[in-house]
Design a protein around this nucleic acid. Sequence first.
DNA 1: GTCTATAATATGATAGAC
DNA 2: GTCTATCATATTATAGAC
Lengths: 200, 200
Amino acid sequence: MGRPPSIDEDEVIARLAKVFSDVGYDGASLAQLAEASGLKKASLYHRFPGGKKQMAEDVLTAALDWIAANVLAPLAGDGPPRERIALAAENLDTFYRGGHRACLLNMLSSPRNEDGPFGKAIREAFEALLAAFAGVARAAGASEADARARAERAVVTMQGSLVLSRGIGSTGPFGRFLDELPDILAAEAGPARSRKVQQP
Amino acid sequence: MGRPPSIDEDEVIARLAKVFSDVGYDGASLAQLAEASGLKKASLYHRFPGGKKQMAEDVLTAALDWIAANVLAPLAGDGPPRERIALAAENLDTFYRGGHRACLLNMLSSPRNEDGPFGKAIREAFEALLAAFAGVARAAGASEADARARAERAVVTMQGSLVLSRGIGSTGPFGRFLDELPDILAAEAGPARSRKVQQP
DNA sequence: GTCTATAATATGATAGAC
DNA sequence: GTCTATCATATTATAGAC
Protein backbone atom coordinates (compact mmCIF):
# COMPACT_ATOMS: atom_id res chain seq x y z
CA MET A 1 0.00 0.00 0.00
CA GLY A 2 1.01 3.61 -0.43
CA ARG A 3 2.10 6.06 2.18
CA PRO A 4 -0.21 6.88 5.04
CA PRO A 5 -2.13 10.13 4.68
CA SER A 6 0.10 12.95 5.84
CA ILE A 7 -2.87 15.08 6.83
CA ASP A 8 -6.30 14.23 8.19
CA GLU A 9 -9.04 14.65 5.58
CA ASP A 10 -11.14 16.85 7.86
CA GLU A 11 -8.18 19.14 8.36
CA VAL A 12 -7.64 19.39 4.60
CA ILE A 13 -11.30 20.27 4.12
CA ALA A 14 -11.06 22.87 6.87
CA ARG A 15 -8.03 24.50 5.26
CA LEU A 16 -9.62 24.52 1.83
CA ALA A 17 -12.75 26.00 3.37
CA LYS A 18 -10.79 28.95 4.65
CA VAL A 19 -9.47 29.68 1.18
CA PHE A 20 -12.86 29.47 -0.52
CA SER A 21 -14.43 31.58 2.23
CA ASP A 22 -11.73 34.20 1.87
CA VAL A 23 -11.43 34.60 -1.89
CA GLY A 24 -14.39 32.74 -3.39
CA TYR A 25 -14.38 30.02 -6.01
CA ASP A 26 -12.81 31.89 -8.91
CA GLY A 27 -10.35 33.64 -6.66
CA ALA A 28 -9.02 30.37 -5.30
CA SER A 29 -6.17 29.03 -7.43
CA LEU A 30 -4.87 25.50 -7.19
CA ALA A 31 -1.50 26.87 -6.17
CA GLN A 32 -3.21 28.66 -3.27
CA LEU A 33 -5.31 25.63 -2.35
CA ALA A 34 -2.23 23.39 -2.38
CA GLU A 35 -0.26 25.85 -0.28
CA ALA A 36 -3.05 26.21 2.27
CA SER A 37 -3.80 22.50 2.49
CA GLY A 38 -0.19 21.48 2.91
CA LEU A 39 -0.46 19.10 -0.05
CA LYS A 40 0.99 19.37 -3.54
CA LYS A 41 -1.36 19.86 -6.42
CA ALA A 42 -1.15 16.25 -7.57
CA SER A 43 -1.98 15.04 -4.07
CA LEU A 44 -5.02 17.29 -3.97
CA TYR A 45 -6.15 15.74 -7.26
CA HIS A 46 -5.65 12.29 -5.77
CA ARG A 47 -8.03 13.15 -2.94
CA PHE A 48 -10.41 15.19 -5.10
CA PRO A 49 -10.46 13.56 -8.54
CA GLY A 50 -13.11 16.04 -9.62
CA GLY A 51 -10.59 18.84 -9.19
CA LYS A 52 -11.31 22.30 -7.87
CA LYS A 53 -15.03 21.93 -8.39
CA GLN A 54 -15.15 18.86 -6.21
CA MET A 55 -13.02 20.53 -3.57
CA ALA A 56 -15.54 23.34 -3.32
CA GLU A 57 -18.44 20.89 -3.32
CA ASP A 58 -16.91 18.84 -0.52
CA VAL A 59 -16.10 21.98 1.44
CA LEU A 60 -19.67 23.19 1.03
CA THR A 61 -21.10 19.81 2.00
CA ALA A 62 -18.95 19.66 5.13
CA ALA A 63 -20.00 23.18 6.09
CA LEU A 64 -23.68 22.40 5.60
CA ASP A 65 -23.33 19.19 7.60
CA TRP A 66 -21.75 21.15 10.44
CA ILE A 67 -24.52 23.73 10.33
CA ALA A 68 -27.15 21.00 10.27
CA ALA A 69 -25.69 19.35 13.35
CA ASN A 70 -24.80 22.47 15.33
CA VAL A 71 -27.39 25.04 14.31
CA LEU A 72 -30.41 23.43 12.66
CA ALA A 73 -30.59 20.52 15.11
CA PRO A 74 -30.46 22.71 18.25
CA LEU A 75 -33.11 24.99 16.77
CA ALA A 76 -35.37 21.97 16.27
CA GLY A 77 -34.78 20.73 19.82
CA ASP A 78 -37.37 20.47 22.55
CA GLY A 79 -36.08 22.92 25.13
CA PRO A 80 -37.30 26.48 25.63
CA PRO A 81 -37.12 28.35 22.31
CA ARG A 82 -34.86 31.07 23.65
CA GLU A 83 -32.39 28.49 24.92
CA ARG A 84 -32.34 26.78 21.53
CA ILE A 85 -31.68 30.13 19.90
CA ALA A 86 -28.87 30.93 22.32
CA LEU A 87 -27.15 27.65 21.52
CA ALA A 88 -27.56 28.20 17.77
CA ALA A 89 -26.12 31.71 18.11
CA GLU A 90 -23.12 30.39 20.02
CA ASN A 91 -22.40 27.87 17.30
CA LEU A 92 -22.87 30.43 14.53
CA ASP A 93 -20.31 32.54 16.33
CA THR A 94 -17.92 29.61 16.23
CA PHE A 95 -18.69 28.82 12.60
CA TYR A 96 -18.12 32.36 11.38
CA ARG A 97 -15.12 32.92 13.67
CA GLY A 98 -16.86 35.75 15.46
CA GLY A 99 -17.57 37.44 12.13
CA HIS A 100 -14.07 37.18 10.69
CA ARG A 101 -15.08 34.53 8.16
CA ALA A 102 -17.40 35.17 5.23
CA CYS A 103 -20.30 32.86 4.45
CA LEU A 104 -19.70 30.25 1.77
CA LEU A 105 -23.28 30.68 0.60
CA ASN A 106 -22.38 34.23 -0.33
CA MET A 107 -18.88 33.53 -1.63
CA LEU A 108 -19.93 30.64 -3.87
CA SER A 109 -23.11 32.23 -5.19
CA SER A 110 -23.62 32.82 -8.88
CA PRO A 111 -25.65 35.60 -10.45
CA ARG A 112 -28.53 33.35 -11.28
CA ASN A 113 -28.91 30.57 -8.80
CA GLU A 114 -29.55 28.00 -11.53
CA ASP A 115 -26.18 28.55 -13.15
CA GLY A 116 -23.04 27.79 -11.25
CA PRO A 117 -22.27 24.40 -9.81
CA PHE A 118 -23.49 25.23 -6.32
CA GLY A 119 -26.73 27.04 -6.95
CA LYS A 120 -28.96 24.16 -5.95
CA ALA A 121 -27.07 23.38 -2.74
CA ILE A 122 -27.01 27.05 -1.81
CA ARG A 123 -30.72 27.54 -2.36
CA GLU A 124 -31.53 24.43 -0.35
CA ALA A 125 -29.22 25.54 2.44
CA PHE A 126 -30.91 28.93 2.66
CA GLU A 127 -34.30 27.28 2.68
CA ALA A 128 -33.30 24.83 5.40
CA LEU A 129 -32.03 27.69 7.54
CA LEU A 130 -35.20 29.68 6.93
CA ALA A 131 -37.29 26.66 7.90
CA ALA A 132 -35.29 26.05 11.07
CA PHE A 133 -35.54 29.69 12.16
CA ALA A 134 -39.26 29.74 11.36
CA GLY A 135 -39.74 26.56 13.38
CA VAL A 136 -38.27 27.99 16.53
CA ALA A 137 -40.16 31.27 16.04
CA ARG A 138 -43.35 29.25 15.74
CA ALA A 139 -42.45 27.38 18.92
CA ALA A 140 -41.99 30.73 20.63
CA GLY A 141 -45.56 31.63 19.85
CA ALA A 142 -45.44 33.39 16.49
CA SER A 143 -48.07 32.81 13.84
CA GLU A 144 -47.02 30.99 10.71
CA ALA A 145 -46.75 34.21 8.71
CA ASP A 146 -44.94 36.06 11.48
CA ALA A 147 -42.56 33.15 11.95
CA ARG A 148 -41.66 33.22 8.28
CA ALA A 149 -41.05 36.96 8.38
CA ARG A 150 -38.87 36.60 11.48
CA ALA A 151 -36.90 33.77 9.91
CA GLU A 152 -36.21 35.82 6.80
CA ARG A 153 -35.16 38.74 8.92
CA ALA A 154 -32.76 36.50 10.82
CA VAL A 155 -31.14 35.10 7.67
CA VAL A 156 -30.99 38.52 6.03
CA THR A 157 -29.45 40.10 9.12
CA MET A 158 -26.92 37.31 9.45
CA GLN A 159 -25.75 37.61 5.85
CA GLY A 160 -25.82 41.37 5.84
CA SER A 161 -23.92 41.66 9.09
CA LEU A 162 -21.22 39.39 7.71
CA VAL A 163 -20.95 41.50 4.56
CA LEU A 164 -20.79 44.75 6.50
CA SER A 165 -18.32 43.33 9.03
CA ARG A 166 -16.00 42.40 6.19
CA GLY A 167 -16.58 45.70 4.43
CA ILE A 168 -15.69 47.95 7.33
CA GLY A 169 -13.14 45.62 8.85
CA SER A 170 -14.94 45.24 12.15
CA THR A 171 -16.81 42.33 13.64
CA GLY A 172 -19.19 44.71 15.39
CA PRO A 173 -22.18 44.19 13.09
CA PHE A 174 -21.97 40.41 13.30
CA GLY A 175 -21.63 40.55 17.07
CA ARG A 176 -24.72 42.70 17.32
CA PHE A 177 -26.60 40.28 15.06
CA LEU A 178 -25.84 37.46 17.49
CA ASP A 179 -27.01 39.59 20.40
CA GLU A 180 -30.25 40.45 18.64
CA LEU A 181 -31.01 37.00 17.27
CA PRO A 182 -33.18 35.92 20.23
CA ASP A 183 -35.36 39.02 19.86
CA ILE A 184 -35.50 38.67 16.09
CA LEU A 185 -36.88 35.14 16.34
CA ALA A 186 -38.86 35.16 19.58
CA ALA A 187 -41.35 37.86 20.54
CA GLU A 188 -39.47 40.30 22.68
CA ALA A 189 -42.06 40.78 25.38
CA GLY A 190 -45.16 39.06 26.64
CA PRO A 191 -48.49 40.16 25.16
CA ALA A 192 -49.25 42.56 28.00
CA ARG A 193 -45.88 44.25 28.34
CA SER A 194 -45.19 47.66 26.89
CA ARG A 195 -42.32 48.10 24.45
CA LYS A 196 -39.05 49.79 25.03
CA VAL A 197 -37.25 48.95 21.81
CA GLN A 198 -36.65 51.56 19.11
CA GLN A 199 -37.19 54.37 21.58
CA PRO A 200 -34.02 56.14 22.77
CA MET B 1 -6.78 61.74 -35.46
CA GLY B 2 -7.98 58.23 -34.80
CA ARG B 3 -11.42 56.80 -35.22
CA PRO B 4 -14.28 58.23 -33.18
CA PRO B 5 -15.24 56.23 -30.11
CA SER B 6 -17.56 53.47 -31.21
CA ILE B 7 -19.25 53.33 -27.82
CA ASP B 8 -19.99 55.95 -25.21
CA GLU B 9 -17.72 55.70 -22.19
CA ASP B 10 -20.60 55.64 -19.74
CA GLU B 11 -22.13 52.75 -21.63
CA VAL B 12 -18.85 50.84 -21.49
CA ILE B 13 -18.63 51.41 -17.74
CA ALA B 14 -22.23 50.25 -17.34
CA ARG B 15 -21.56 47.04 -19.25
CA LEU B 16 -18.38 46.32 -17.34
CA ALA B 17 -20.28 46.99 -14.13
CA LYS B 18 -22.74 44.27 -14.94
CA VAL B 19 -19.95 41.74 -15.40
CA PHE B 20 -18.19 42.64 -12.14
CA SER B 21 -21.50 42.62 -10.27
CA ASP B 22 -22.37 39.22 -11.68
CA VAL B 23 -19.14 37.28 -11.28
CA GLY B 24 -16.90 39.42 -9.09
CA TYR B 25 -13.37 40.63 -9.77
CA ASP B 26 -11.59 37.31 -10.07
CA GLY B 27 -14.45 35.76 -11.97
CA ALA B 28 -14.37 38.43 -14.65
CA SER B 29 -11.96 37.55 -17.47
CA LEU B 30 -10.79 40.04 -20.05
CA ALA B 31 -12.41 37.92 -22.74
CA GLN B 32 -15.72 38.29 -20.88
CA LEU B 33 -15.23 42.00 -20.27
CA ALA B 34 -14.39 42.58 -23.93
CA GLU B 35 -17.39 40.59 -25.09
CA ALA B 36 -19.74 42.43 -22.73
CA SER B 37 -18.38 45.88 -23.52
CA GLY B 38 -18.48 45.40 -27.27
CA LEU B 39 -14.79 46.32 -27.54
CA LYS B 40 -11.81 44.13 -28.29
CA LYS B 41 -9.29 43.52 -25.56
CA ALA B 42 -6.73 45.94 -26.98
CA SER B 43 -9.37 48.68 -27.15
CA LEU B 44 -10.26 48.10 -23.53
CA TYR B 45 -6.59 48.52 -22.62
CA HIS B 46 -6.53 51.74 -24.60
CA ARG B 47 -9.37 53.12 -22.51
CA PHE B 48 -8.18 51.57 -19.27
CA PRO B 49 -4.36 51.57 -19.35
CA GLY B 50 -4.32 50.15 -15.84
CA GLY B 51 -5.97 46.98 -17.10
CA LYS B 52 -8.58 44.98 -15.29
CA LYS B 53 -7.81 46.60 -11.97
CA GLN B 54 -8.51 50.05 -13.35
CA MET B 55 -11.69 48.84 -15.02
CA ALA B 56 -12.99 47.66 -11.66
CA GLU B 57 -11.85 50.87 -9.97
CA ASP B 58 -13.60 53.04 -12.54
CA VAL B 59 -16.72 50.90 -12.35
CA LEU B 60 -16.73 51.21 -8.58
CA THR B 61 -16.14 54.96 -8.71
CA ALA B 62 -19.00 55.42 -11.16
CA ALA B 63 -21.31 53.34 -8.98
CA LEU B 64 -20.40 55.30 -5.87
CA ASP B 65 -20.89 58.58 -7.70
CA TRP B 66 -24.34 57.44 -8.78
CA ILE B 67 -25.21 56.42 -5.25
CA ALA B 68 -23.93 59.72 -3.90
CA ALA B 69 -26.10 61.68 -6.30
CA ASN B 70 -29.21 59.52 -6.18
CA VAL B 71 -29.26 58.07 -2.68
CA LEU B 72 -27.00 60.01 -0.33
CA ALA B 73 -28.01 63.43 -1.64
CA PRO B 74 -31.77 62.79 -1.35
CA LEU B 75 -31.28 61.44 2.17
CA ALA B 76 -29.50 64.65 3.12
CA GLY B 77 -32.23 66.82 1.60
CA ASP B 78 -34.50 69.15 3.48
CA GLY B 79 -37.92 67.60 2.88
CA PRO B 80 -39.82 65.39 5.32
CA PRO B 81 -37.58 62.48 6.35
CA ARG B 82 -40.01 59.81 5.15
CA GLU B 83 -40.17 61.45 1.72
CA ARG B 84 -36.40 61.51 1.49
CA ILE B 85 -36.32 57.85 2.41
CA ALA B 86 -38.96 56.97 -0.17
CA LEU B 87 -36.92 58.64 -2.90
CA ALA B 88 -33.74 56.89 -1.78
CA ALA B 89 -35.55 53.56 -1.79
CA GLU B 90 -36.85 54.15 -5.29
CA ASN B 91 -33.34 54.86 -6.54
CA LEU B 92 -31.87 51.87 -4.72
CA ASP B 93 -34.48 49.76 -6.49
CA THR B 94 -33.25 51.17 -9.81
CA PHE B 95 -29.61 50.72 -8.90
CA TYR B 96 -29.97 47.07 -7.87
CA ARG B 97 -32.43 46.30 -10.69
CA GLY B 98 -35.15 45.35 -8.26
CA GLY B 99 -32.79 42.95 -6.49
CA HIS B 100 -31.50 41.18 -9.59
CA ARG B 101 -28.08 42.77 -9.35
CA ALA B 102 -25.59 42.05 -6.58
CA CYS B 103 -23.82 44.84 -4.72
CA LEU B 104 -20.32 45.70 -5.91
CA LEU B 105 -19.31 46.38 -2.31
CA ASN B 106 -19.96 42.72 -1.62
CA MET B 107 -18.62 41.33 -4.91
CA LEU B 108 -15.34 43.27 -4.75
CA SER B 109 -14.69 42.74 -1.05
CA SER B 110 -11.56 41.04 0.17
CA PRO B 111 -11.20 39.00 3.33
CA ARG B 112 -9.40 41.74 5.15
CA ASN B 113 -10.44 45.16 4.06
CA GLU B 114 -6.85 46.42 4.04
CA ASP B 115 -5.78 43.91 1.42
CA GLY B 116 -7.32 44.01 -1.99
CA PRO B 117 -7.26 47.05 -4.24
CA PHE B 118 -10.75 48.22 -3.30
CA GLY B 119 -10.79 47.82 0.45
CA LYS B 120 -10.43 51.50 1.24
CA ALA B 121 -13.10 52.63 -1.24
CA ILE B 122 -15.47 49.95 0.01
CA ARG B 123 -15.04 50.87 3.65
CA GLU B 124 -15.53 54.54 2.90
CA ALA B 125 -18.63 53.78 0.84
CA PHE B 126 -20.16 51.79 3.67
CA GLU B 127 -19.36 54.54 6.12
CA ALA B 128 -20.87 57.21 3.87
CA LEU B 129 -24.04 55.16 3.53
CA LEU B 130 -24.20 54.58 7.28
CA ALA B 131 -23.76 58.32 7.87
CA ALA B 132 -26.47 59.22 5.36
CA PHE B 133 -28.94 56.76 6.85
CA ALA B 134 -28.10 57.94 10.37
CA GLY B 135 -28.61 61.53 9.30
CA VAL B 136 -32.13 60.98 8.07
CA ALA B 137 -32.98 58.88 11.12
CA ARG B 138 -31.75 61.71 13.29
CA ALA B 139 -33.90 64.13 11.30
CA ALA B 140 -36.87 61.86 11.94
CA GLY B 141 -36.38 62.28 15.66
CA ALA B 142 -34.07 59.48 16.71
CA SER B 143 -31.33 60.00 19.24
CA GLU B 144 -27.74 59.86 18.01
CA ALA B 145 -27.27 56.31 19.29
CA ASP B 146 -30.64 55.13 17.97
CA ALA B 147 -29.94 56.73 14.60
CA ARG B 148 -26.66 54.86 14.33
CA ALA B 149 -28.33 51.58 15.22
CA ARG B 150 -31.08 52.17 12.66
CA ALA B 151 -28.54 53.08 9.98
CA GLU B 152 -26.60 49.90 10.60
CA ARG B 153 -29.77 47.88 10.48
CA ALA B 154 -30.65 49.48 7.15
CA VAL B 155 -27.27 48.74 5.57
CA VAL B 156 -27.19 45.22 7.00
CA THR B 157 -30.71 44.49 5.78
CA MET B 158 -29.97 45.87 2.34
CA GLN B 159 -26.85 43.74 1.91
CA GLY B 160 -28.39 40.66 3.44
CA SER B 161 -31.54 40.91 1.37
CA LEU B 162 -29.44 41.13 -1.80
CA VAL B 163 -27.46 38.06 -0.76
CA LEU B 164 -30.58 36.08 0.08
CA SER B 165 -32.37 37.20 -3.07
CA ARG B 166 -29.51 35.91 -5.15
CA GLY B 167 -29.23 32.74 -3.09
CA ILE B 168 -32.84 31.66 -3.41
CA GLY B 169 -33.34 33.11 -6.87
CA SER B 170 -36.11 35.46 -5.84
CA THR B 171 -36.20 39.21 -5.49
CA GLY B 172 -38.70 38.91 -2.65
CA PRO B 173 -36.29 39.66 0.20
CA PHE B 174 -34.91 42.79 -1.49
CA GLY B 175 -38.42 43.99 -2.28
CA ARG B 176 -39.42 43.60 1.35
CA PHE B 177 -36.29 45.48 2.42
CA LEU B 178 -37.36 48.44 0.31
CA ASP B 179 -40.85 48.30 1.79
CA GLU B 180 -39.48 48.24 5.31
CA LEU B 181 -36.79 50.87 4.86
CA PRO B 182 -38.96 53.80 6.00
CA ASP B 183 -39.83 52.00 9.24
CA ILE B 184 -36.25 50.89 9.76
CA LEU B 185 -34.97 54.46 9.61
CA ALA B 186 -37.87 56.50 10.97
CA ALA B 187 -39.75 55.70 14.14
CA GLU B 188 -42.77 53.73 13.14
CA ALA B 189 -45.29 55.39 15.39
CA GLY B 190 -45.56 58.50 17.49
CA PRO B 191 -44.47 58.30 21.12
CA ALA B 192 -47.95 57.73 22.51
CA ARG B 193 -49.21 55.11 20.08
CA SER B 194 -49.30 51.44 20.99
CA ARG B 195 -47.46 48.98 18.78
CA LYS B 196 -48.88 46.54 16.34
CA VAL B 197 -45.72 45.23 14.74
CA GLN B 198 -44.33 41.79 15.54
CA GLN B 199 -47.71 40.65 16.83
CA PRO B 200 -49.68 38.40 14.48
C1' DG C 1 -9.64 54.77 -31.32
C1' DT C 2 -9.99 50.16 -32.93
C1' DC C 3 -8.29 46.22 -34.57
C1' DT C 4 -5.37 41.44 -35.50
C1' DA C 5 -1.67 39.07 -33.85
C1' DT C 6 1.25 37.73 -30.32
C1' DA C 7 3.85 37.59 -26.13
C1' DA C 8 4.53 36.05 -21.25
C1' DT C 9 2.60 33.98 -17.60
C1' DA C 10 -0.70 31.54 -14.60
C1' DT C 11 -4.06 28.19 -14.49
C1' DG C 12 -6.46 23.64 -14.03
C1' DA C 13 -5.21 19.20 -14.67
C1' DT C 14 -2.31 14.71 -15.65
C1' DA C 15 1.68 11.25 -16.05
C1' DG C 16 4.46 8.45 -13.88
C1' DA C 17 8.25 7.62 -10.31
C1' DC C 18 8.65 6.26 -5.50
C1' DG D 1 -0.64 8.56 -0.86
C1' DT D 2 2.73 11.90 -2.14
C1' DC D 3 5.75 13.80 -5.01
C1' DT D 4 8.40 16.19 -9.36
C1' DA D 5 7.79 17.26 -13.92
C1' DT D 6 4.92 18.37 -17.51
C1' DC D 7 0.82 19.40 -20.59
C1' DA D 8 -2.73 22.10 -22.81
C1' DT D 9 -5.20 25.97 -22.24
C1' DA D 10 -6.75 30.45 -20.60
C1' DT D 11 -5.22 34.47 -18.73
C1' DT D 12 -3.49 39.34 -18.52
C1' DA D 13 -1.25 42.34 -21.22
C1' DT D 14 1.37 44.47 -25.30
C1' DA D 15 2.99 45.50 -30.27
C1' DG D 16 2.05 47.55 -34.25
C1' DA D 17 -0.98 48.15 -38.48
C1' DC D 18 -4.81 51.02 -40.03
